[in-house]
Design a protein around this nucleic acid. Structure first.
Lengths: 167, 167
DNA sequence: TCAATATAGTATGGAATCAAACTAATTGCA
DNA sequence: TGCAATTAGTTTGATTCCATACTATATTGA
């Protein structure tokens, strides 16, 4: 996503305000900080998953399948839940199937459909990674005290609910 | 990055805790919420920039160049500041050069180097997009009151500074 | 019933992104 | 000085991801 490392110097900020008068510098700089922090966190998760041969996209597919009672879902449904296009989901499933973590089955009711099922190996993979994931994430989130963490989560969600303002 | 739309149901959470006992559900769910919110915000920025034929990577290159006194920098320096590899930066510069928004010059002092300069068209592009960007982002960030916004930015940065815990 | 429309999934082509390998130029040290 | 190590930038090949277009199947409504 974005890893803009260097926040602007005060000199370049001055220059900026001269060129674009009336700019609320703190709004912009908070915005960039948020993006950068989020990107760092996401990259760290990537790195954790990579140690187990996974990437975020595929990881979330496994997690979504685990949530299902019969460990089964369809590509379209998975794409919706994961927030990616169907084309992207095809790619994830291809990769997961290649590694034997999920299997494709025909849907006998609707012959356009496939059923994607978490395989035994897929469940084992989850059982291998999940405890590490849970432990790391818990430790990480406890960097903040409970009230700060709640406020952070709530406020960020509030903010994100108004992304319609960015258009 | 990730857009996991569907947060787990309480039933699937129960199942989760059964399989992975001792899990701090709220830590995990806060973590996922943060990633999701950030992803939504980043996507919204993508969409805004796309309206002007830009993408985040290229956009940040233009912004970084604008910050320089002589509107000039080198690929390596830009890569460092943007937090991408040199190879990725080569791609950004190729694209920007193709569109005439930056130019490549030889560095006469060090013949391994190039100088990348923001072109007049590049500055015009910034002048076209920046006011919209500034206005949208300002409105967006003002969804939160000043104290909430400050706390959010600070706490998120604090959190991100401990990504070493995710490993 | 059957043609229009909608839906499921895949294929294609492109951009972003990285790691690793490569070339050319510079620097450092023996 | 001269060779080894470093640095700048690109190329290559891979993966992720999207938009668009395509195929096959299902649904709907006249």
């Amino acid at each position: 996503m974005l890893l803009l490392k260097e926040l602007p110097t005060s000199k370049s900020l001055e220059k900026f305000v001269t060129r674009y008068p009336g700019t609320d510098i703190s709004a912009i700089s908070d915005f960039v900080s948020i993006l950068r922090a989020a990107s760092d966190i996401s990259s760290a998760l990537d790195a954790l998953l990579a140690q187990h041969g996974l990437l975020q996209g595929r990881w979330w597919v496994l997690v979504l399948l685990m949530r299902q009672d019969d460990l089964t879902s369809s590509p379209s449904e998975l794409a919706d839940k994961a927030g990616v296009t169907k084309a992207t989901m095809t790619g994830f499933i291809d990769g997961l199937e290649r590694e034997g973590l999920v299997s494709r089955f025909m849907d006998t009711n609707d012959r356009r459909k496939f059923l994607i099922r978490l395989s035994v190996a897929g469940q084992q993979k989850l059982d291998e990674v999940m405890p590490v994931y849970v432990q790391c994430v818990t430790q990480f989130m406890n960097v903040l005290g409970k009230p700060e963490r709640n406020a952070l989560t709530t406020d960020l969600a509030t903010l994100a609910s108004r992304v319609d303002l960015i258009k």
